[in-house]
Amino acid sequence: MFTKETGVLTVTTSYTSNPASTTVELKSSYNIPLVLVVAAIPMLIVQPWVAGLMGLFGLFLMFQAVTLRLLFTPTDLDIYRGEKLIRRFPYREWQNWRIFWNRVPILFYFKEVKSIHFLPILFDPNTLKTCLEQRCPRI
């Protein structure tokens, strides 16, 4: 609103500056699966069985990274496979969380009222940490 007397233009907006009020989908990260698959190749010479298991586990994690989607909503962490919701974790039930090995994040832990979860980091670790800090600060 502009007034002639004061010469001041007042602008109002409904923009919300709270990033926790939006839904964020994490981008997949293939770092862990690729490292496992590549490390399995030279391991074939030393321990073929170990190399086979490591390679299969790497391929399994690659499949998970391709097919799963993590969405941080304002109230829950949702896990989707394609368009199907697999699991919902309401933040109000979280007691604690932690990302192991900050330099090379490979494991994400969180504790709910009823259970504990350990997940390999198959998504962008920086966005994961930012979303966690915004939506459920550590106790």
Rank of each mutant, 00 (worst) to 15 (best):
N96I: 00
Q95T: 13
P90D: 05
T13I: 06
L107G: 06
L36N: 04
D124Y: 05
N31K: 13
T75F: 04
Q64H: 05
L53S: 00
S21G: 08
Y80K: 05
Q47V: 01
R81K: 10
L128Q: 04
S115F: 03
P105W: 02
V38A: 15
K111H: 00
N31M: 14
G58R: 01
L36G: 09
N31P: 10
L36Q: 04
Y15G: 09
G82P: 01
E133D: 10
F63G: 09
S14F: 12
S115L: 06
T16L: 12
L59H: 12
R92A: 13
T130Y: 10
S28M: 00
A20G: 13
E83T: 15
I32G: 01
H117A: 01
R103C: 06
L26E: 00
F57L: 15
P120G: 02
T127H: 00
Y80T: 01
G55K: 00
P19I: 09
K114D: 12
V38F: 11
L70C: 06
K84R: 14
S17W: 05
W97R: 03
L34V: 14
F2E: 07
F123D: 05
F108A: 09
T10L: 13
A65R: 04
V11R: 02
S14E: 14
K27C: 04
V104M: 15
W49T: 06
N102W: 14
P125E: 00
K129C: 01
N102C: 04
P90S: 07
K114H: 11
L53M: 15
F100V: 03
L59G: 01
Y91M: 11
D76H: 12
L26P: 05
S21Q: 11
V66D: 06
G52K: 05
P125V: 09
L119P: 07
F89Y: 15
I32P: 03
W94D: 03
S115Q: 10
A65I: 01
Y91Q: 01
V50S: 14
T127C: 00
G55H: 07
R88H: 05
L26Q: 02
S28K: 14
G82T: 04
T130N: 13
